[in-house]
Amino acid sequence: MELKVEHINKSFVTNKGEQVDAIGDVSFTIQDKEFICIVGPSGCGKTTLLRIIAGLDVPSGGKAELGGKEIVGPSPKMAMIFQEYSLYPWRTILDNIAFGLEVQGVETDARYATARKYLKLIGLCEFETSYPYELSGGMRQRVAVARALAVDPEVLLMDEPFGALDAQTRNAMQTELLQIWEKTRKTVLFVTHSVDEAVFLADRIFVLSNRPSKIRETIDVPLPRPRDRTSVEFAQVRKHVLSLIQNTEESSQ
């Protein structure tokens, strides 16, 4: 399903009464089953953009469309994965994964069957009756991914989902996410501040400029997967993306 963003801009007023133009003018079109990463300098409105697409925030102007229909609120066709602490600590892992289905009124047996399927996909079967506090940070994010996949969305929106993890876990999670993506083939829109992560994951990278942000450049990453972080080609793409971000950060000073 095609995800289209047309001339979205977003301003808000701070507590001090100043107007901040976070997103200037952003447009893009994402094809079905594409893996897109959005990178940009801090404060450029990456997360806000994702929240608008998720239907959690309303743009000041412009619109986002999914499959030709304007997005006006949360839709079962999209699931969002937050940076951390999104699991319900009073629910078991299985009940967390089944949450979306439960809310959508799927009956108990059916939703547990689906939840178990995704629990298997993320390789945490033995934690079915555990609670989130018994899991490591990486495991929790895998559960959050499983919960999102369980409602079978068209689009996965991921807001720095591995940002709170240590470097080693983070790399492992990226590899695992790609494996899951190969199996389930969702459209993924992934916000990150790590250039390395973006180059490792994405089909295309959108580099945002400083606020009021617009898309500074769209970079195709033609490298075959699994990608080698130490290869020359990888380094070249990373260098290019980094130079774009550094330029924007310098131009704002």
């Binding site: 998720a54 949360p74 937050f82 319900y88 979306g100 809310v103 409602v151």
Partner: peptide, 29 residues
């Protein structure tokens, strides 16, 4: 109640009654 818990429920399409019973009440318990 943690804002992310509320927004997670909203993203999955929970209505107000479900947000109250499945998120707010257990979280505030």
């Amino acid at each position: 109640v943690n804002q992310t818990w509320l927004e997670t429920a909203t993203v999955y399409g929970a209505n107000e009654r479900q947000i109250l019973t499945k998120v707010i009440l257990p979280a505030a318990a």
